[in-house]
């Protein structure tokens, strides 16, 4: 299975939780931090992201970027 991670544009997040519900690997949660709009942005709190993009597809505020991680070796092959 692919490995991935998400990037969070914390200022844009509205804490709606849709991505948390959508993530099949349950690696997202609402953080304790507070952004300038008063919302607690989402965070990836553990490894295990499979780069499936479900979180980003469901986010209404285009907060998330998704990266696929590949070993350099695999990449060269």
């Amino acid at each position: 299975m692919a490995k991935g991670r998400v990037g969070v544009n914390e200022e844009r997040c509205k804490s709606c939780g849709l991505c948390v519900a959508a993530c099949p690997m349950k690696v997202l949660r609402i953080s304790d931090r507070i952004n300038s709009k008063g919302y607690r942005p989402v965070e990836q709190f553990k490894e295990g992201c499979i780069a499936c993009r479900m979180c980003a597809i469901t986010c209404p505020d285009v907060v998330l970027e998704v990266f696929r991680l590949e070993d350099d070796k695999a990449c060269n092959a």
Partner: peptide, 18 residues
């Protein structure tokens, strides 16, 4: 590790909070 971005904001979207 090599990172490939596979999801980002579309270019024709204006970069603001809705």
């Amino acid at each position: 590790m090599k990172e490939t971005k596979i999801f980002e904001k579309p270019k024709s979207m204006i970069d603001v909070t809705t």
